[in-house]
Lab assay of single mutants.
Amino acid sequence: GPGLTDLFKTEKAAVKKMAKAIMADPSKADDVYQKWADKGYTLTQLSDFLKSKTRGKYDRVYNGYMTYR
């Protein structure tokens, strides 16, 4: 089956995709945050998933999740 690194890459891609969806349409934020909360994502995990070469690119999404939880 898929190894943990593959799983991480898949999760990371999914999280980034959802983060971009929030940035494009902030009204989606609560739905996405709820999904992440259901998956039990911690802020540390989210921070790892949303690492970007562009500093602060996903800060709004991260901060939103922090206040959501």
Rank of each mutant, 00 (worst) to 15 (best):
G1F: 08
G1L: 11
G1R: 08
P2G: 13
P2W: 02
P2D: 12
G3H: 12
G3Y: 04
L4F: 12
L4G: 11
L4N: 12
T5A: 11
T5S: 10
D6N: 08
D6L: 05
D6E: 09
D6G: 06
D6K: 09
L7Q: 15
L7A: 14
F8S: 10
K9T: 05
K9I: 05
K9C: 13
T10G: 10
T10L: 09
T10Q: 14
T10D: 13
E11M: 05
E11H: 06
K12M: 13
K12T: 08
A13K: 15
A13L: 08
A13T: 08
A14W: 14
A14G: 05
A14K: 13
A14P: 02
V15P: 00
V15E: 02
V15Y: 01
V15H: 01
V15W: 02
K16S: 04
K16T: 06
K16L: 12
K17C: 12
K17T: 08
K17N: 08
K17E: 09
K17F: 08
K17H: 08
M18R: 03
M18V: 03
M18F: 05
M18L: 07
M18W: 07
A19I: 03
A19G: 02
A19N: 00
A19K: 00
A19H: 00
K20F: 06
K20L: 08
K20Y: 06
A21I: 13
A21L: 12
I22W: 00
I22S: 02
M23P: 00
M23F: 04
M23G: 02
M23A: 03
M23K: 04
A24Q: 12
A24C: 13
D25L: 03
D25A: 04
D25C: 12
D25K: 04
P26H: 05
P26R: 04
S27I: 06
S27W: 07
S27G: 06
S27V: 04
S27R: 11
A29Y: 02
A29G: 06
A29C: 06
D30Q: 11
D30F: 12
D30R: 10
D30T: 10
D30P: 11
D30I: 11
D31N: 06
D31W: 11
D31F: 15
Y33H: 02
Y33M: 01
Y33G: 00
Y33F: 09
K35I: 15
K35H: 10
K35R: 09
K35Q: 13
W36V: 00
W36N: 00
W36M: 02
W36K: 00
A37N: 08
A37V: 14
A37F: 14
D38F: 07
D38P: 00
D38I: 07
G40C: 06
G40N: 07
Y41D: 01
Y41K: 01
Y41G: 00
Y41W: 05
Y41H: 02
T42L: 03
T42Q: 03
L43I: 06
L43E: 05
T44Q: 14
T44W: 09
T44G: 11
T44N: 11
Q45I: 09
Q45D: 08
L46D: 00
L46F: 02
L46W: 01
L46K: 00
S47Y: 13
S47T: 10
S47I: 09
S47N: 09
D48P: 02
D48T: 13
F49M: 08
F49D: 01
L50P: 00
L50R: 01
L50G: 01
L50I: 03
K51N: 10
K51E: 11
K51H: 08
K51D: 08
S52C: 10
S52L: 05
S52E: 07
S52K: 04
S52T: 10
S52Q: 05
K53R: 13
K53L: 04
K53H: 09
T54K: 11
T54M: 07
T54N: 11
T54W: 09
T54I: 10
R55N: 12
R55G: 10
R55I: 13
R55E: 14
R55M: 11
G56C: 10
G56L: 05
G56D: 09
G56I: 05
K57L: 09
K57G: 04
Y58H: 02
D59Y: 08
D59G: 05
D59V: 07
R60F: 15
R60M: 14
R60Y: 14
R60T: 14
V61K: 00
V61S: 00
V61F: 02
Y62Q: 05
Y62T: 11
Y62L: 15
Y62R: 05
Y62A: 04
Y62D: 01
N63D: 12
N63A: 12
G64P: 00
G64Y: 02
G64E: 07
G64W: 03
G64F: 02
G64N: 04
Y65S: 00
Y65V: 00
Y65L: 00
M66Q: 14
M66N: 07
M66L: 13
T67W: 14
T67E: 15
Y68V: 02
Y68C: 03
R69M: 15
R69I: 15
R69K: 13
R69F: 11
